[in-house]
Write a protein that binds this DNA or RNA. Structure first.
Length: 785
DNA sequence: AGGGTTTTTT
């Protein structure tokens, strides 16, 4: 028997399966310098040394042994492993070909060993077993409802390829399931991957589970989100966003290296969760070693099961306190929910005992209005009775991180917090200490209209599961109450039972491009759980053709392949790629980085009624006559020359976090461009090249002035009727004379159809930057361009 | 002329 990667791998795997084996092998134990009672697993896990290191170590020890004794057979015998004894274990993930002659590897292993011996020997048991896990956390873990079904759960996962796990909030499924499965030895053949819809959730779950295992993040437990990677060769449980898993499919279509994938929060049905579903269905046929767990709230469990070939459903109870439901006698319309919330918050404050109030409202402006009204109504009464004092806390997505952190600060003594929130507080943020929930029954949601390319913000009735979710926010720590501003019969008979999945109401350009890169030639044959609108798919295909990412036969072009490398919208990727040829990629990198940030605002948006004049003055200082995107460059450069100072940002009403994010994205995009040999060159102050590059992606988004302030789509087609307006938040809004021709980055409908991200361009540039689209348009409109 | 729910990408 000779030393080979497979041999050593098999030994390591064997050791993993039987952790005490090593202690029983005197020769090996002596070689490792372990005390008699030591256990192999304890050794590696206490220092976060994983399989690969163990592997290297063994290789090293083995070769030293052979060198000294010249007998391989004895060594192997000492391990009591025979070749016939199930040696065909697959190698650990990420190992690749082992090089026994790699001195660096073995030296590093020896170094780690020495360090280990110094610190570890005296307190082996207390270090990993219990000592590392604080008493309080141990208690929390052991009181989770899921613990009572641990054994059954592990059995069910062992028996099935796909399992649907249904559990209420507080069951502990997100943190405990991956841990249980790893403990049960189900991660032997590969990683356990867990997806989450949000970056914060992926990160904080990794941190929490690490604490529960007495390790630090990036060792046994790690996470990967866009632009942030915290895993190592030792990682067994990996948390990630669902969008990132979709990206991984491109590189690794069979998901080799994973033993189990857990899709968590599946009921939210995000765009990327839905794509993962379709991809996983395929992979289950290709990769027989893979198991899948779909983890969801109670909603729609039968549909999940049916979609995955009638996979069994495993139910876990929750850990919620009772929440009393109080309904209104009549339903309110969209005009009176605001006053309803104000009334209800005040009466709860005046009549109920201690505990914070959480009120759900549809938007930021509602929150600001309600704030004012509640304040003025309670001001006179403050202190006049033995009342609790009240503090109003606003909570919505565009709030800066500092303000969001305020929400988690404990209330001052003698104060009741009234949290006025949008649906960020429904799932993304959990606010502690809430006893009362006031639910207005509405929310806002965007829907994309593929025929016009316009995103519309619609006021909608919440769904029944949403109502349950909102109610649950009052029962996290003790018994609570929910005040619903609608009747019980309306909830049961007129509120929708499910919402529209995101994939059926969003732009599909990037989805179609990604699926094409993965080799799905016919997107219509991809088995979605809910099929996207066919006009949306067609629209995406046509746009990708216009971008020359797909050819006439819908095949991927080299340009399309290049575009798909970037974690950007196809339009933005095209602009970036085109900028190299136009010799303005340095500037366009800045612009694309600004445009790719969606959920933060560049200028301070808080209390905008009070601060808007100051914000406008600051914006005016940076503005550029050619448009918003050129202003971004001004801001970026001045921010850099101010030394990226936070103080400077505050003075100029800019969001420091936004600009740091721009820097981060820009650096990473620059790296990707280098990898693709796309030169990064500056055009200096020649803004023509920059604006031409933007035509390569935004060519469809042109508008021509029609009246005093209103615009018509250019070319004026009957698909998009009505007038467009420059959004008041644009730096071009106050510009006189009103520009006669503009290109916009974004279009959405609220009270009007608004264009945002305005650039002044020359329509003749479309001919060179988007030749395919130009030809099509010329055939229909002879004067186009 | 006058203001947007929420997420996310090797």
């Amino acid at each position: 028997m000779t030393l080979s990667a497979e041999n050593v791998t098999a030994i390591v795997d064997k050791l993993y399966q039987n952790e005490t084996l090593i202690a029983k092998v005197p020769k090996l134990r002596a070689a490792l310098g372990l005390p008699d009672s030591a256990e192999w697993k304890t050794l590696y896990s206490s220092f976060g040394v994983g399989r690969v290191t163990a592997h290297t170590l063994l290789t090293h020890i083995f070769s030293e042994w052979v060198e000294k004794n010249g007998e391989e057979a004895n060594f192997m015998e000492g391990l009591t492993i025979r070749q016939d004894n199930n040696m065909a274990v697959s190698p650990p993930p990420g190992l690749g070909k082992l090089d026994p002659g790699n001195t660096m590897q073995s030296e590093l292993a020896k170094y780690r060993m020495r360090r280990m011996e110094q610190t570890w020997t005296p307190s082996l048991n207390s270090r990993f077993r219990i000592g590392q896990i604080p008493e309080q956390i141990q208690q929390q873990i052991s009181s989770l409802p899921i613990l009572s079904v641990k054994a059954e759960l592990i059995e069910a996962v062992k028996k099935n390829r796909v399992l649907i796990v249904v559990g209420e909030a507080g069951s502990g499924k997100s943190t405990q399931i991956p841990k249980y499965l790893a403990e049960a030895g189900l991660a032997e053949a590969g990683l356990i991957g867990c997806t989450q819809p949000r970056r914060i959730a992926a990160k904080s779950l990794a941190e929490r589970v690490s604490v529960e295992c007495g390790t630090t993040v990036g060792g046994l437990i790690g996470y990967v989100i866009r632009f942030e990677k915290c895993v190592s060769a030792d990682t067994v449980i990996k948390f990630m966003t669902d969008g990132l898993l979709v990206r991984e499919f491109i590189l690794n279509p069979n998901l080799s290296g994973y033993s189990i994938l857990i899709i968590d929060e599946a009921h939210e049905r995000t765009k990327y969760t839905d794509i993962c579903f379709g991809l996983l269905r395929n992979v289950l046929n290709e990769n027989p070693n893979l198991k899948v767990i779909i983890s969801s709230a109670t909603l729609d469990k039968e549909r999940f099961s049916a979609y995955f070939d009638n996979a069994p459903i495993f139910t876990v109870s929750g850990n919620m306190f009772e929440v009393e439901e109080i309904y209104d006698q009549f339903s309110r319309d969209q005009l009176s929910y605001l006053s309803g919330v104000v009334d209800k918050v005040c009466s709860v404050h005046f009549n109920e005992g201690p505990g914070h109030i959480l009120a759900f409202l549809p938007g930021q402006s509602d929150i600001e209005k309600a704030s004012e009204q509640i304040l003025s109504r309670t001001r006179n009464l403050m202190g006049s009775r033995h009342l609790l004092k009240m503090k109003i806390v606003q909570c919505y997505g565009l709030l800066s991180l500092e303000r969001q952190n305020e929400i988690f600060k404990p209330a001052e003594e003698g104060y009741r917090n009234v949290v006025l929130a949008t649906n960020v507080a429904e799932t993304s943020l959990t606010i502690p200490g809430i006893r009362f929930v006031v639910d207005c029954g509405f929310f806002k949601q965007s829907e994309y209209d593929p025929n016009t390319g316009i995103e519309e913000l619609k006021m909608k009735r919440i769904t029944q599961p949403q109502a349950t979710q909102r109610k649950g926010r009052a029962g996290r720590t003790e018994k609570g109450k929910v005040y619903r501003l609608y009747t019980k019969s309306d909830l049961i008979s007129t509120f929708p039972s499910t919402g529209l999945p995101e994939i059926q109401r969003s732009n599909l350009e990037s989805v179609v491009l990604q699926l094409t890169v993965m080799g799905f030639k016919d997107v219509f044959k991809f088995q979605f759980m809910d099929t996207p609108r066919s006009d949306a798919v067609c629209e995406a295909l046509e746009k990708l053709q216009d971008l020359s990412a797909l050819d006439e036969e819908m095949r991927l072009t080299p340009m399309g392949r290049q575009m798909a490398q970037f974690p950007l919208d196809p339009s933005l990727a095209k602009i970036l790629v085109s900028s190299s040829k136009l010799r303005c990629s340095e500037e366009v990198l800045i612009i694309v980085s600004f445009l790719s940030i969606q959920n933060q605002s560049l200028f301070n948006q808080e209390n905008y009624q009070a601060t808007k004049d100051l914000v406008k003055a600051s914006m005016h200082k940076f503005s550029h006559r050619s448009g918003d995107q050129l202003m971004y460059i001004n801001i970026y450069e001045e921010w850099r020359s101010a030394g990226r100072s936070k103080h400077w940002c505050v003075q100029n009403h800019l969001n420091a976090q936004f600009l740091e994010e721009v820097q981060n994205i820009k650096d990473q995009l620059a790296e990707m461009m280098k990898g693709l040999h796309l030169p990064i060159v500056s055009c200096g102050s020649n803004t023509v090249a920059v604006r031409q590059a933007m035509c390569a992606g935004f060519f469809r988004q042109l508008a021509k002035r029609r009246g005093q302030y209103d615009y018509a789509k250019y070319p004026d087609s009957d698909r998009v009727r009505g007038s467009f307006f420059i959004h008041p938040s644009s730096s071009m809004f106050p510009v006189r004379p009103v520009p006669s021709f503009v290109m916009y980055a974004e279009m959405f409908r609220t009270s009007k159809m608004y264009m945002k991200g305005i650039t002044i361009i020359d329509p003749s540039w479309v001919a060179s930057e988007a030749p395919i689209y130009y030809k099509k348009m010329r055939a229909l409109y002879p004067n186009f361009g």
